[in-house]
């Protein structure tokens, strides 16, 4: 799949932002006044910034409101609905914390649940696609949720939670990679089933429909950079999970905390780049590619 920067930025930043909102909604940390303002500004900035970035790749962003209508069938529509609900609830909670030094539990808890709901619905947009075997697994939502919770705990300064969640997310990440590497073969979709010609013999793509490229090849058959995938996995694992854990284990300072957050976000961005670049869509088979 083509790793569109807008989608990578969106899933990385909004995952982090909604993760932070989750912990803030639970009152961890229970901040008020200007401190609360700073925390909520960062959380909303990341979450909303990510959502805005995700509209950059739309052909007609001016019709985006229509995307709220089909929540009964579409995970993308559910994501839109849940994210607005979560942002409203957390906005209400933030209002109380910043201006009234209050901690309104109901909107806080519901908002925290909503924040997780956003991450879950985002991950289901990918996990539902049978056409991309690497994504089509329950491990995808598990990984997205773990990353978001761990990153949020890191940003919220919840060191003990972060120290439990980062290794969990790291393990899920490795499992997700290992399963993903065999997923295409295990899906049962191959040249024979794609063409229905397998009974005659081994099928080979002889000529593509046109000499030029097309939307399908640009969008779904991304092979550039896959050769670096092992190195990038190392970077994602090191920066995203291992280094933040080490930085949290040494005596706490704000500078090291900041470094841990930056390292984590960079590592997760690398992991998200791989999430798309390594994912193979079955349509590539019609072109004799993967």
């Amino acid at each position: 799949m083509h790793p569109a920067p807008s989608v990578i930025i969106f899933t990385t930043l909004s995952g982090l932002g909604f993760g932070l909102l989750f912990w803030l909604g639970l009152g961890l940390p229970a901040v008020t006044g200007w401190t609360a303002f700073a925390f909520f500004a960062i959380a909303f900035g990341l979450a909303v910034g990510g959502l805005v970035a995700s509209t950059f790749h739309l052909g007609h962003p001016e019709r985006a409101l229509k995307a709220f209508t089909q929540w009964r069938s579409s995970w993308l529509s559910r994501e839109a609905v849940v994210s607005v609900a979560a942002l409203c609830l957390m906005g209400l909670y933030a209002l109380g914390a910043v201006f009234f030094a209050a901690s309104w539990t109901l909107p806080g808890w519901l908002g925290a649940l909503g924040a997780l709901g956003v991450v879950f619905t985002t991950s289901m947009i990918y996990a539902q696609l049978r056409t991309v075997p690497r994504w089509h697994t329950a491990l995808t939502p598990a990984l997205f949720l773990a990353i978001s919770l761990a990153g949020g705990a890191l940003l919220a300064g919840q060191v003990s939670f972060a120290l439990a969640l980062l290794p969990l997310a790291g393990v899920l990440q490795v499992l997700w990679w290992l399963r993903g590497d065999g997923a295409f073969a295990a899906s049962g979709t191959d040249m024979a089933s794609a063409t229905g010609l397998g009974d005659i013999g081994a099928v080979r793509a002889f000529e593509p429909p046109h000499t030029g490229s097309n939307y399908l090849l640009r969008e779904f058959v991304h092979v550039v950079g896959r050769k670096h995938s092992l190195r990038l996995r190392g970077i994602a694992l090191g920066l995203g999970y291992v280094l933040p854990i080490i930085l949290l284990l040494v005596p706490f300072s704000h500078l090291l905390g900041l470094l841990a957050v930056i390292s984590h976000a960079t590592g997760i961005a690398a992991s998200r780049w791989l999430f798309f670049a390594e994912a193979e869509h079955v349509v590539g088979l019609y072109y004799g590619k993967r």
């Binding site: 790749h57 947009i125 696609l129 056409t131 079955v282 349509v283 019609y286």
Partner: peptide, 13 residues
């Protein structure tokens, strides 16, 4: 809205 998700979901291109 041109989100392209339907093209992602179609196995046949």
């Amino acid at each position: 809205i041109g989100c392209g998700l339907c093209a992602w979901a179609c196995p046949y291109g």
